Each structure stands twice: as structure tokens, then as C-alpha cells.
Amino acid sequence: MITSPSSLRRSERSRRAILRASLDLCTERGYGRVTVEAIAARAGVSKKTIYRWWPSKGAVLLEAFADVLVDATPFVDTGDIGADLRAHVAGAVRVLSVPPFGPAYAGILSELHHDDTLARAVREQLVDPRVEEAVGRLRGAQDQGQIPPGANLPLAVEMLYGPVYYRHVLGKPVQDEETVAALVDHVLRALRAPGY
């Protein structure tokens, strides 16, 4: 006997189709030319379905981008904080350097300046959880004696991510492996400097 899929499965299938469609359209047209209407048509769903789950095209693309970024940049603990941070930052650079993810995130970042709902979503769904995870990984290194007690871990996270996003937003060439290694080494040296 053949049974129809549950509404939950249909919803997940639709969600994935919408996220894929938004990324495909961003690659083909650029962030600015993507519309909710076009996403709905490509995904084979109604606009109402999209608006039931997301308030805007930026929110759709944010979820699609966040899914990929989280998967590509885990916070692993091999016992070597330098190696772990180099791998993590290099993963972020790779995601930001390829369409559709880089252009999608650049579009989201430009739009959040005049969309308070999207700005809040970026902070709550992406930035704050990632910062919390990064601080947690640094705290683990601190507990292992690799980073001195009293080091400002949230500031260290900003120092790590700041150059990556600065280059991305300004359209500068992405960091290569050597530049990422130099960035991580510089931040770790700063954390170990006298006064921390």
C-alpha cells in the first residue's frame, strides 16, 4: 500500500526546495535581482508558503547561507588551538569566496542596514550563536593552558572574524592559506601578550 508523505515531510521538502531555489537564483541573477516571486516559481510553491516561514527574501537567503556556513566551519578541538582556528577560518573564507554563498551574504549584509527584522535575524540566527561557539572553543583552549586566563575571548573572536568580513564586504581578494595562518598567529600572540 502506498501512503502519502506526511505534511511535515512535505514541509521539509518545500523548505529545502525554497532554500535551493533562492541560492540558484542568487547565482544566476545576483542578490539584488532575486525576488520572492521568482523563488516561489523556481521552488514550485506559492508566495504564501514562503511568507508563512520567512518575512523576506533576505531571511530565506540567510537561512540557506547559515546552513552551509555552520556545516563548513565546525569548531573542532584537536588539542591545538592554532590548527583548529586556522581550519575554521579557512572554512569561512572558502564559503564566502564562492557563489552563491559569498554574494548572498554580501547582499544580506547590505540589506540589514535598512531592514531591522533582518538585522535582528542575522544577529540571533547566525552571529550570536557562532560567536558563542567560538568563545567556547577559545575557553576550552584556555582551560588547556593554551590561552592565558583573563584573556578577552569575545574580543579575540572579533579580531579573528573582522578581517575576513572586512575583505568580503569590500570585495577585496580572499585570504589565502598563508594569510589565514598569519591572522590566527597574530590573534593568538595578542592574547598571550603581557597584560592579558
Score class of each variant (00 low, 15 high):
residue 2 I to L: 02
residue 9 R to I: 07
residue 11 S to R: 15
residue 13 R to P: 04
residue 13 R to T: 13
residue 16 R to N: 15
residue 18 I to E: 01
residue 21 A to R: 13
residue 22 S to E: 05
residue 28 E to Q: 14
residue 30 G to A: 00
residue 30 G to W: 08
residue 31 Y to E: 07
residue 36 V to I: 12
residue 37 E to R: 14
residue 37 E to N: 13
residue 40 A to K: 02
residue 41 A to S: 14
residue 45 V to F: 04
residue 51 Y to K: 01
residue 52 R to S: 04
residue 56 S to V: 04
residue 56 S to T: 11
residue 59 A to D: 15
residue 59 A to Y: 00
residue 60 V to W: 05
residue 61 L to E: 10
residue 65 F to L: 04
residue 68 V to M: 04
residue 69 L to V: 11
residue 71 D to Q: 15
residue 80 D to Q: 02
residue 81 I to N: 01
residue 86 R to C: 13
residue 87 A to D: 11
residue 87 A to W: 01
residue 89 V to M: 07
residue 91 G to K: 03
residue 92 A to C: 08
residue 93 V to P: 02
residue 96 L to R: 06
residue 99 P to Q: 15
residue 102 G to M: 07
residue 103 P to I: 04
residue 104 A to W: 02
residue 106 A to N: 07
residue 109 L to Q: 10
residue 113 H to F: 10
residue 114 H to R: 13
residue 114 H to Y: 07
residue 117 T to M: 07
residue 118 L to W: 01
residue 121 A to M: 02
residue 122 V to R: 06
residue 123 R to F: 04
residue 127 V to Y: 00
residue 128 D to V: 00
residue 132 E to T: 13
residue 134 A to W: 03
residue 136 G to A: 09
residue 136 G to D: 08
residue 137 R to V: 11
residue 138 L to I: 05
residue 139 R to H: 06
residue 140 G to H: 12
residue 140 G to C: 03
residue 142 Q to L: 05
residue 144 Q to K: 12
residue 145 G to A: 12
residue 148 P to I: 00
residue 148 P to M: 01
residue 150 G to R: 08
residue 150 G to Q: 13
residue 151 A to C: 08
residue 156 A to S: 04
residue 162 G to A: 11
residue 163 P to C: 14
residue 164 V to P: 07
residue 164 V to F: 07
residue 167 R to S: 08
residue 168 H to K: 04
residue 172 K to C: 10
residue 175 Q to N: 03
residue 177 E to N: 14
residue 180 V to Q: 11
residue 181 A to F: 02
residue 182 A to R: 10
residue 189 R to L: 11
residue 193 A to N: 06
